[in-house]
Design a protein around this nucleic acid. Sequence first.
DNA 1: CACCAGGTTGACC
DNA 2: GGTCAACATGGT
Length: 211
Amino acid sequence: MKNNELVEIYRLLMDELGPQYWWPADTAFEVVVGAILTQQTKWSNVEKAIMGLKEQDLLEPCSLADADISLLEELVRCCGFYRQKASRLKNIAEFFAENDMESLFCLPVKEFREILLSISGVGNETADCIILYAAGRPKFVIDAYTTRIMACMGRKGNYMQLQRLFEENLPRDVDLYKEYHALIVEYSKAFCSRKRCDDCLLRGKFEIEGL
DNA sequence: CACCAGGTTGACC
DNA sequence: GGTCAACATGGT
């Protein structure tokens, strides 16, 4: 891949859609909660659950860690997989209740990522969302949209392969990483969904033969 | 009514 | 290393 091709794609997306200003949240821990809740789920449903949790003062590690599991299940039911997610929220809340967030955020990204991945319910994408949008540290987030739109342009790859591709061909810039991921999601929803990839400008301009 | 959504896990090869 | 079912509600 030409070295600056990913930068060109970024400019095209930015010209089309403008800045997205992800991730909407009042606190870093709210990003963490949202990262769990949005797994395989629309953000509009996550917003409802976040509001409910906020009303119960459960958007902080200690209170969330001590909350009744059946109450959590009720509050996150609108996000689907509600039993798993209630339990995952409790897990990660317990972790952040016992470990200082600011200290964790200052760790080397690689080390912080390993720690996050050791928490049950936190996989690659959730860990990277927390690193990028909660901690504000550079880590490029790959999701189903990114995987699909890259495959659409002839670049198939697994999570780590695609992440390496982006990180090795872009400046290590937190705001760029944030916007790029958000733009890919929003652009894909509009022009390169599972049902339709007809109007996708990227295919025509950047499609290539193989990896 | 069928399909999809800002994934993760554990079992299995 | 990779693949696959299970997990579940809500919107189009």
